[in-house]
Design a protein around this nucleic acid. Structure first.
Length: 599
DNA sequence: GCCGTTTTCGGCCCGACTGTTTTCAGTCG
């Protein structure tokens, strides 16, 4: 292996952002600035470590990284630094890059502050800037004033308090909160339509702010009605007809945007984003002589540049010669191309889900992890309500530290008998049209062995293999571990494949090409766990997997009957990964499942 | 500096808001 220096994606993104800032200060080509910013975003959002891609000679797969930046990355990984970058930053005060962390401070402002206040070194730079602002030394600088000095000070204080790192909400939490307000608004007679906007409408795994839009002919009346909502604590600003911001009792900020019916479509499209989708859409439109905005479409080749309005999104996209693009895939990942050639995927729908193969009932299996809280009967009842055709119970394996092999086999035998009885009662006696599967979720030990004696497998219909311990193995070792764990013929599913916990823990690194190939050859399925802080496999990897022909299975991982309805968030992840019904195991009929599981 | 079924050269998203200014520059989403 070649000798190399390690940099995380975050560190690389920071380097690129600093180069962009440096070029901005030097008033270099603005598109070069944009190129580095784009590269930074791309690196930050990558699902693989850039270092690993470099190792595998795959840097050209990263959008926004071309020949030049790739060569700089090569130098960075080989030598630990980039001469060209050092050159660019040489005559700039290091302190200015610290100042960029302050909200409202961009490159030009940061540079002006650092040079005019003579704060050069990065050490304690922000502290020294704060002192200068407190002493009134900022307001006297050219292009600064009392207000900007005050804003600067407030910005520094909120940075110090860590207020800027506001945690993002998990999707189901934000979705519930928004639904409550949406339902409230729908009761207002002047409200014609309500939609969530932004990341919530796109069903991203975590949500920053909740934005909602209302279509109405009388915005003032809707605003009055909205402000009577019981859970509002503070009104931040109103008076405008198009926007109200409030803080709820829970501390959550809600932005409500209002639009007249004739231009609602353009507004909805604009604020749904994503930013990347909109940028690409506008670039695409420009080539057709059209300029897009939240108000509509302007024909820029005509002298008076008339604005055409759109009442709905469908007509907006059609005007551009595109089919309507579902919000979940508006991420700038090829959807515009697909819409143009009329080849958008027919995304999997909640109604197409025919079963749930990852449930933890309260059958006492003496597990190493948590036991479920609901009985199989309760879960079966809920499954019928959800119109499922089949249901798989996969409790955690019995704890290996507290049982002998013999005891574990005994417990599995008991579980099998217990579920055979349930199957008999459901299928034969009560003649309820649902198939029950007796499964298990088994730990993959660090060496890749499964935490279950071979003989115990005889008592299972199928198994899910998951990593629950020792997350910090190298990518190679983790990949070998997972591949070994998947080898057993009874193991059909890799549970929550990256092990990430949203807002808590990064997932472990795997060599996805090897995993995908293995799944494809051996008929294994990657789980999309609908569990709120997992939503794992992540959407981008779902898209990669499906492009390779690998199939996924969407499971709720319910430990309580109430959690079974969280399935829809797993479906959202699948949709964001461009999954169609054919790509999803549990949208297949029972015959197909029984064939694949050899039951 | 990136990128490509209208281009390997010549393009590169759009508008709101704010503060310091008398017409704009910087920041943000």
């Amino acid at each position: 292996m070649k000798k190399s220096f390690s940099f995380t994606n975050k560190e690389i993104a920071k380097i690129f952002n600093e180069i962009a800032a440096a070029y901005q200060v030097k008033e270099d080509n603005q598109f070069k600035v944009a190129a580095y910013q784009k590269a930074a975003v791309s690196v930050e959002h990558a699902t693989s470590e850039i270092k690993d891609l470099w190792d595998d000679n795959k840097l050209d797969q990263v959008p926004g990284i071309g020949k030049n930046i790739a060569s700089y990355l090569d130098e960075l990984f080989r030598t630990g630094k980039v001469k060209h970058f050092e050159e660019i930053k040489r005559d700039l005060p290091p302190a200015m890059f610290e100042f960029l962390k302050i909200p409202g401070v961009g490159p030009k402002t940061a540079y002006a502050l650092a040079t005019k206040l003579n704060i050069k070194s990065a050490k304690n730079a922000i502290e020294r800037l704060k002192k200068a602002a407190k002493e009134g030394k900022v307001r006297v600088l050219e292009n600064f004033g009392e207000k900007s000095e005050k804003d600067l000070l407030e910005g520094i204080i909120s940075l110090e308090k860590g207020e800027l790192k506001t945690k993002r909400m998990l999707l189901p939490y934000a979705d519930n909160l928004a639904s409550e307000i949406v339902n409230y608004l729908k009761n207002c007679p002047q409200v014609l339509q309500v939609h969530p906007l932004g990341s919530l409408r796109r069903m991203v795994a975590t949500i920053g702010d909740i934005d909602l839009s209302v279509c109405t002919k009388s915005p003032e009346k809707v605003i009055d009605y909205f402000l009577k909502f019981k859970k509002i604590r503070t009104v931040l600003d109103k008076g405008k007809e198009s926007l109200v911001r409030v803080i709820l009792l829970s501390g959550q900020q809600i932005d409500l945007r209002l639009s007249l019916p004739e231009s609602y479509g353009a507004m909805l499209q604009y604020f749904t984003g994503s930013k990347q989708h909109n940028i690409e859409l506008r670039e695409y439109a420009l080539k057709k002589g059209m300029s897009l905005s939240e108000y509509g479409i302007r024909l820029i080749n005509l002298p008076q540049k008339p604005l055409k309005k759109f009442a709905d999104e469908e007509s907006f996209y059609h005007e551009l010669g595109l089919s309507w693009i579902p919000p979940e895939i508006r991420e700038g990942r090829g959807e515009i191309e697909a819409a143009k050639s009329n080849s958008l995927p027919r995304l999997i729908d909640n109604k197409e889900i025919k079963g749930d193969l990852h449930l933890h009932s309260n059958f006492d299996i003496e597990p190493s992890h948590d036991l479920g809280a609901s009985s199989p009967e309760e879960m079966i009842e809920e499954a019928l309500r959800l119109k499922y055709e089949y249901l798989g119970f996969s409790e955690h394996n019995p704890s290996t530290s507290q049982h002998t092999e013999k005891q574990i086999i005994e417990i599995l035998k008991r579980k099998s008998e217990f579920f055979e009885q349930i199957k008999y009662s459901i299928e034969r006696v009560k003649k309820i049209p649902i198939k029950i599967l007796n499964g298990l979720e088994i730990d993959i030990k660090p060496n890749g062995e499964l935490a279950l004696p071979e003989k115990a497998f005889d008592y299972l219909d199928y198994a899910i293999a998951s990593v629950h311990t020792n997350f910090n193995l190298s990518r190679e070792k983790m990949t070998q571990r997972v591949l070994r764990g998947l080898q057993h013929p009874k193991v059909k599913i890799l549970g929550h494949p990256t092990g990430r916990l949203l807002e808590e823990r990064e997932g472990y690194e795997l060599d996805w090409e090897l995993i995908f190939d293995f799944c494809l050859k051996n008929n294994k399925f990657l789980e999309i766990s609908a569990w709120p802080n997992r939503l794992d496999l992540p959407d981008i990897l779902v898209k990669d997997a499906i492009a390779k022909g690998v199939k996924v299975v969407i499971n709720s991982d319910s430990h309580h009957v109430e959690q079974m309805k969280l399935m829809k968030y797993g479906v959202a992840v699948a949709r964001r990964g461009w999954a169609e019904s054919k790509d999803v195991l549990n949208s297949q009929p029972w015959e197909k499942i029984s064939q694949i599981f050899n039951i």
